[in-house]
Design a protein around this nucleic acid. Structure first.
Length: 493
RNA sequence: GCGGGUGUAGCUCAGUGGUAGAGCGUCACGUUGCCAACGUGAAUGUCGUGGGUUCAAGUCCCAUCACCCGCUCCA
């Protein structure tokens, strides 16, 4: 039975073994930013690789992409982020609690049913609009009508392109990787001979100025996403939605996440983004908050919304030039009447029809998954009265696959072990260690999550076999040295 | 952003206004013949940061940064 890890245990293990460090630690740290250490970068790379392999390489119907983080500002006008990716917040003057303006209740409504989920507001309009808060109740202290003026919270990071201050353009760090895929939909269609249904996948950094960050690397302002936009014919979208739900859930299970810690959560209709037809979260039972379920990945049916929006965006280019690049001064142009035949439409050669594809989007957080894999693998057990800490990583995720030891440092054992190490590191991420007692070396590898330890002993000198010790069971088998790569490859699939 | 808590060695933590500590870990040498063994020795501290009070501050005061818990918020 695995021990329930506390977040503090995980944080301290991550530091101790070099998985994750606070960013800029020598300067006192920078809020919500983290660095991956030597073991952490291997782990995170393996999470990426596992996703890429499952979503791109093992499929005939998905191709990859890697877009720039900085994109044309109109991308965010079209996607809606520039207008809507912001919240209007006011603060209670009595207790300083901050609340979204659209979440405040009238005094008369107090105790009424839970509020509806409302999309991010159109910030320019909302700021201009008059808000009568005189009858609103502070959800915290109950004080009525005692609020500061509403203030907008922008959730996108802004930066300037161009070294010349007078001639620079305000750009946004992307708040999601998805839009780069939509913006390249045409390029991929024109260059790769893909046919619908097909998907485009991308892994990369995204940035959001979250109002609050949370729980170690769970919610950070800079984070890594793995997103797939799967394009399909309208009418087949429900089917594909179910397909990807299953695929993505099983991905976590196949990589060793315990079933009891993983679940789906369907979004209620009033919780859905306005463009989404359906959305389900894959949730993991993290050991923080109130031991609560937290989102690892969202799988959404985005319909034809994004491609249609970008067709509108493309039509807005002139207006943008005329407004000298001021996004706030322009409206997205209305959709063309013939939008179904627009530049981002798809022509089906067999059916001889043209349409805007629907999109199923599984969007996973790589940092979140990495944390979930760490938490789920964490275990403590008692062996001969001693505590054994270990990470029961799936072999595909383990930062180091194999460690090689000489049992003792004499009789030529180190030389043989080194030769084995040099041979194996061509095939696997391998680690060599000859310091201290062999038991200690085993335990060090346990805490790094290394699945196999190979030990050269006295018998090796006689018959060229070594012991292969398995992390979880601590059991050993003897294997001929020349059979090692094959033996390990079979176990490490 | 609010409330509560924390911050001293890589980790876990002691530390009463008066010399900076322990356990584990790390390193070196020896020993060792399969699960954190033993011996000897060693290194590692902006006591989160900056001010202040004091003859003297890790300890008291103020500010600030970061993390954790709970709110709030959350594609």
């Amino acid at each position: 039975m695995a021990k329930l890890a506390k977040l503090d245990d995980i944080v301290s293990l991550c530091k101790r073994r070099g998985f994750i460090f606070q960013s800029s630690e020598i300067y006192g740290g920078l809020a919500s930013c983290y660095d991956y250490g030597p073991l952490g970068v291997e782990l995170k790379n393996n999470v990426r690789k596992a996703w890429w392999k499952a979503v791109v390489q093992m499929r005939d119907d998905v191709v990859g992409l890697d877009c720039s983080i900085l994109m044309h500002p109109l991308v965010w006008k079209a996607s809606g982020h520039a207008d809507k990716f912001a919240d209007l917040i006011c603060e209670c003057k009595k207790c300083n609690t901050r609340t979204r303006v659209d979440h405040l209740k009238d005094k008369a409504e107090e105790g009424a049913a839970a509020q509806e989920h409302i999309e991010h507001v159109d910030i320019e309009k909302e700021v201009a609009a008059q808000h009568d808060l005189s009858n609103k109740v502070c959800p915290d202290c109950g004080k009525v009508g005692n609020f500061t003026e509403p203030m907008p919270f922008k959730l996108m990071f802004e930066t300037q392109m161009g070294a010349n201050v007078d001639d620079s353009m305000t750009l946004f760090l992307r708040p999601e990787t998805a839009q780069g895929i939509f913006a390249n939909f045409r390029n991929v269609l024109d260059t790769t001979r893909v046919k619908i249904p097909f998907g485009i996948a991308q892994i990369g950094k995204s940035f959001r100025n979250e109002v609050t960050t949370k729980a170690f690397i769970f919610r950070t302002r800079e984070f890594e996403q793995a997103e797939l936009e799967f394009f399909c014919e309208p009418g087949t979208d429900d089917e594909w939605f179910e397909h990807w739900k299953e695929q993505r859930f099983n991905w976590y299970l196949n990589l060793g996440i315990k079933k009891e810690n993983l679940r789906f959560r369907e979004h209620d209709a009033d919780e859905l983004a306005h463009y989404a037809k359906g959305c389900v979260d894959v949730e993991y039972k993290f050991p923080f908050g109130s031991g609560d379920w937290q989102e690892l990945e969202g799988i959404a049916n985005r319909t034809d919304y994004d491609l249609r929006q970008h067709q509108r965006g493309m039509r807005t280019l002139n207006a943008w030039f005329e407004a000298k690049g001021d996004l706030a001064k322009i409206e997205l142009k209305a959709e063309a009447e013939e939008y179904l035949k627009g530049p981002l439409s798809y022509f089906d050669d067999v059916e001889k029809k043209r349409y805007i594809p629907y999109v199923i989007e599984p969007s996973a957080g790589i940092d979140r998954s990495t944390l979930a894999f760490l938490v789920d693998a964490y275990d403590e057990e008692e062996v001969r009265g001693e505590k054994r800490n270990l990470l029961r990583f799936h072999p595909a995720l383990a930062p180091t696959k194999v460690a090689v030891f000489p049992l003792v440092r004499k009789d030529g054992m180190p030389e043989i072990a080194r030769n084995i190490y040099n041979d194996l590191k061509e095939h696997f991420t391998t680690f060599y260690d000859e310091k201290g007692a062999v038991g200690r070396r085993y335990r060090r590898q346990d805490e790094a999550g290394t699945p196999f330890c190979i030990t050269v002993d006295g018998q090796t000198l006689e018959d060229k076999t070594v012991t292969v010790r398995e992390r979880d069971s601590m059991e050993q088998v003897r294997v001929a040295t020349d059979k090692l790569p094959g033996h390990l490859r079979e176990k490490l699939v």
